[in-house]
Design a binder for these strands. Sequence first.
DNA 1: TTCCCATGTAAAATCGATTGCGTAATCACT
DNA 2: AGTGATTACGCAATCGATTTTACATGGGAA
Lengths: 352, 352
Amino acid sequence: MKDSAGDKKQKDNVRPPVHHTTSLKQLAEHLGLNPATVSVVLNEVPGRSIPQATRDRIKAAAKLLNYQPNLLARSLRSRRTLTIGILVPELGDGYHTQVMSGIGDQLIKAGYFYFTAHHRHKPSLIEEYTRMLIGRGAQGIIAIDTMLEHSIGIPVVCVAGHRHIEGVTNVLLDHVRAAELALNHLYSLGHRQIAFMRGQPFSSDSDERWKSLVRVADKLGIAVKPELVINLERDMSSPELGYPVVQQLLAAKQPFTALVAFNDISAIGAIRALQDVNLRVPNDISVIGFDDIKAAAFTLPRLTTINQPLEEIGRIATQSLLNRIHNTIPPSDEITVEPELMIRESTGPVKS
Amino acid sequence: MKDSAGDKKQKDNVRPPVHHTTSLKQLAEHLGLNPATVSVVLNEVPGRSIPQATRDRIKAAAKLLNYQPNLLARSLRSRRTLTIGILVPELGDGYHTQVMSGIGDQLIKAGYFYFTAHHRHKPSLIEEYTRMLIGRGAQGIIAIDTMLEHSIGIPVVCVAGHRHIEGVTNVLLDHVRAAELALNHLYSLGHRQIAFMRGQPFSSDSDERWKSLVRVADKLGIAVKPELVINLERDMSSPELGYPVVQQLLAAKQPFTALVAFNDISAIGAIRALQDVNLRVPNDISVIGFDDIKAAAFTLPRLTTINQPLEEIGRIATQSLLNRIHNTIPPSDEITVEPELMIRESTGPVKS
DNA sequence: TTCCCATGTAAAATCGATTGCGTAATCACT
DNA sequence: AGTGATTACGCAATCGATTTTACATGGGAA
């Protein structure tokens, strides 16, 4: 059984030649058949009469020669690339990548792959990458936290998109419900002097979340004082985001007992800023976050926050896009998902 | 200047018809020229004599009709897809996505796009996705924290790969240096009783990091006691990872003054576990992490850790892969990058 | 025996672009 | 006017698959 060492590189067991790929034509030639026949058999095209013997012969040869159809060629002909594009502002950010994780799972199941492009919120890049993705054969696009300006000729699903555009499905959180959960929680703990953090203007949830908070605060009779509103400006995804703005807030010397952060990342930075001036969370100030990223359950104190089912959002977005692509069911313009209040340690009753 | 509203949908300025894409043939027909000529002009193929007037005419028409070459067709012909594949165990994890961020930046510059596939450490999926990526025309693969078994016929770069495989470049951290930084730091603070956390067996850095730590500990005369070694097993990327193992460690009742965590994520969980039994970090126990993820600077206490330049690793890996693809410079088997010690608050002098 | 149809396979067109080669037309020059 | 070089393109093959159409053979029905 000793290998008589014909080829040096053949040091592993007999492995089919992965390198040199076989084309349909070569396979057909090897079989003494026409490529068309081979194609028909391997794709199990219905309504063709090919005797079982030939079919078996073809399949055996395909396996032997490790035939892998060239997807480029196939796509060129069939106009189905089984590819979609994902537009995302930033990689390396928990929110986006968790959504992407849900997308990836669902796409693979459907036999699709995806291109990713990150644009760092630059409108010109959004435009350019959209074109490039289409040029590369994307049959649809999922845009996460990305402001699209107009419809683009292929199906699109926006995660956290709020503009209504033809051919675009928006998947978004029920922001009013989220605001209710957050503010009811704080209200029931006795908080009335509440500071708010507004998201960056380029973040697509900022506006909607803010409006919802204002509306619900109003309903509860909580005043939204301008001196207690801080605005995020910087484009970053580290807790550093929330640190300086809280310093500003404190500098204003307006009393408050709770802070509604824009998201968990900024909440973590905010808490650090509070702790750094010896304010205790939640004893002196309660802080509530948004998103429920994985780290939220492990900060000190553990972060009370509003959970968004990020992976599920990704899955829903994907399913919705595939529906649009396959024209199975009439597409909906909007799909909302429900938030959930995660009560942990960063909120507590107001000091009496 | 008023728009006389011919087409309802034409509400923006004159926008070229993005939807109906023009093919080379159509463009050529429109011009009364042969597709080949048009192709030659638009691609600026050298050594062809086409008068400037014609060139201008062609370019004008291309712009007018919004001609976008079909990259599938182009790739089929030229065998250059300008696409690479990225294999990654998990999306939604800070380490991987930060590397991907560096990769993405660098690839875009070179005109490449990438497919991502996440395999959750399942060897069968790694194998399958590798094949699929090649089938979709990937000209190279970057495998992050992914154990490849054998060479695959196209250029590969492994980030944090340690096996030497033909045709594969490994980009990795100087682990010995990292271990020195970590242990020298603890040693100089007076720590002698040090607990260690070992990475999961499926994580490709685990072994190398562990060996380096043992070697350096040995050199410093620090005993690595089996009772003070805990093993990560679970496949997760939340701080939860490091929580239960520290509980186990504490249950063993072996005294120790410092803990070297496998990475920052597990360090954060570990710190929580210590704090939850009223041990103070760093007063009672010093903890050092690994990676320097973004959150590390905002935990309480801020995490002392070993920085890996993740985005740079991504860029280096990409450059190296592109070199392999283009055969520019002879490829190296291994590229190491240097770690850096980030001293923050989670380590301190041992209690006297 | 003749005609038709089912059967099994081949041939050719197609998808959209690239590329080596060919050639008619123009030009320069003796 | 004849010769060779240059200019300005067109033709056709090619990439690898799919799909439509065509064709040969054989068997059964009339």
